[in-house]
């Protein structure tokens, strides 16, 4: 295919797209507050460890995974779908759905165990409630926690050889996933979040993979 543009057009496009940023006069103050909170947590964590305590840094309702909803469930007035469908394939490689799970409520942590068949594994989380928070923690050592918004668009991501690493393909992995209501206070700097309420809100997670 013929190359159509020069780098100047790229720069112009990038400038045009960012022409009207929303103002936030409190940004510095808010960022400093986040920093202070992170520092406090870090110090609290350090103090607890130095005292030999074995304790969770953040205690959240619903962490036991027993499926029981806490008493402060907030009813929602909007009509939500009872279940979220997942596409049969995903990604450029059109990988088939290898594992999936569907849930009807947000706020409860769930565990998902699957075996990676390749280094191209795709995961897709679909959330029915716009701007929900998605937290993905891996129980495999050395893998980062990922946190971001989910819904109305898919949260779709794919590993590659570099990000998967040598300990990915052919092994079982367990993830702990949480979809949190949009209003949950989340600190993306420290991967921590405030009080979580269990609410109706369908979501689904699919693992797409194919053995090479």
């Amino acid at each position: 295919m013929t190359m159509a543009h020069g780098p100047d057009e790229l720069t112009i496009m990038l400038r045009e797209r960012t022409a009207s940023p929303p103002a936030n006069p409190r940004r510095g103050e808010q960022a400093a507050a986040r920093g202070r909170r992170a520092l406090r947590r870090r110090r609290a964590c350090g103090a607890a460890l130095s005292a030999g305590a074995v304790a969770a840094v953040v205690a959240l309702p619903g962490l036991t995974g027993d499926g029981g909803a806490p008493a402060d469930v907030t009813p929602m007035s909007v009509r939500l779908p009872p279940a979220v469908p997942l596409p049969g394939t995903a990604g450029d490689l059109r990988l088939p759905l290898a594992a999936s799970a569907r849930y009807t409520h947000m706020g409860e942590p769930v565990r998902l165990t699957f075996t990676a068949l390749s280094v191209d594994t795709v995961y897709n989380v679909r959330c029915s409630v716009p701007d929900s928070w998605l937290v993905v923690e891996s129980e495999s050592p050395g893998r980062e926690t990922s946190i971001g918004r989910c819904g109305p668009q898919d949260h779709l991501a794919q590993y590659d050889r570099q990000s998967a690493g040598p300990a990915w393909a052919g092994r079982a992995h367990t993830w702990r996933l949480r979809v949190l209501p949009p209003g949950t206070r989340v600190d993306t700097a420290t991967f921590t979040f405030g009080k979580v309420t269990v609410q109706p809100g369908a979501w689904a997670v699919g693992i797409y993979d194919r053995r090479r």
Partner: peptide, 12 residues
């Protein structure tokens, strides 16, 4: 905004 504040908080 989330991403920027995350970075600024770490810089702070």
């Amino acid at each position: 905004e989330d991403l920027l504040q995350t970075a600024l908080a770490k810089a702070w």
